[in-house]
Design a binder for these strands. Structure first.
Length: 270
DNA sequence: TGGCAGGGTCATA
DNA sequence: TATGACCCTGCC
């Protein structure tokens, strides 16, 4: 569970203890405790929400089989072993878009803090087990705020991007909920119309909220570890790594990226 | 205490 | 196509 909650793909999970995390998923509060391969979930949701929760955690996918497939790339076996138990979540595209706009040139602690402040300021309170949580605001909530107000959430120069992207989504200029139905190339093209969204952020949005597993988002960690594994530790352009990964991993690229990211960040370069 | 890096993007030349 | 600026924070 820790690997999922702290894997850098979702920013609204907080650790209670080593096996227990509490997260906000749309309007649901999930208090999740892992016991062996079982998840015990306390939630404000109802029985109707079970399928949504299963979908969010991608529980219907056989990750044991997936890890076996990934292990056919011998050079990444250490990463697959280290990151065993990783999953790719199925999150809300709008929330994921804003979260990864904030992620640019930022660190995970800052990203989480800023998102939390945005939710407290613009979202709605959700009361659960004596605590108050906040939902992620809607596109129009953020489109209608002013830049200076947004800046108080410490998002810095990204305030302009957040507001303008929110406006484009609220106005339907980019139909973000429709993009899961179009090709990866088309989806990327649409997402990159949003200010603050470049290739990397667009690919993260597609991977973590649209199940486009053929993308391979390259950040500083992935760049470093790919250079170590495949490019003799030499400085290599992102474009070159991108092309290399596309040819090598194909439709497994997104999964490889997630296993490598966790490995690179927490083990290889620590 | 100051410099630097952090899941990049954008504007400029 | 290549460079530097950019908010803010935590770390060394």
């Amino acid at each position: 569970m820790g690997i999922i909650a702290e894997g850098g793909q979702a920013f609204r999970w907080n650790r209670i203890d080593c096996n227990r995390y509490v997260g906000v998923v749309d309007e649901l509060i999930l208090d999740v405790e892992q016991q062996a391969d079982m998840l015990i979930i306390d939630t404000n949701g109802t029985i109707e929400d079970i399928s949504k929760i299963k979908d969010y955690f991608d529980l219907d996918r056989d990750y044991h089989l997936l890890e076996k497939q990934l292990s056919e790339y011998e050079e990444i076996i250490p990463a697959v072993k280290f990151s065993s138990g990783s999953r790719i979540l199925h999150q809300d595209p709008w929330e994921t878009a804003i979260s990864f706009i904030i992620s640019a040139n930022n660190n995970i602690r800052n990203i989480k803090n800023t998102i939390e402040r945005i939710c407290m300021r613009y979202g709605s309170p959700i009361y659960f087990n004596g605590n108050v949580f906040y939902s992620f605001p809607t596109p129009s909530d953020l489109a209608n705020t002013c830049e200076d107000d947004l800046r108080e959430t410490k998002c810095g120069y990204r305030a302009k991007y957040i507001k303008e992207s929110a406006k484009m989504i609220a106005d339907g200029i980019v139909d973000i909920y429709e993009l899961k139905n179009v090709s990866t190339e088309e989806g990327r093209k649409e997402l990159m119309k949003l200010p603050g969204v470049g290739r990397k952020v667009a690919d993260c949005i597609m991977l973590f909220s649209m199940r486009k597993f053929d993308v391979f988002p390259i950040d500083i960690w992935i760049k470093r570890i790919m250079e170590h594994i495949y490019f003799d530790c030499k400085d290599t352009s992102i474009e070159k790594i991108q092309e290399f990964a596309h040819v090598k991993y194909g439709n497994l690229g997104g999964f490889v990226q997630q296993y490598l990211f966790h490995f690179g960040r927490l083990k290889y370069f620590s």
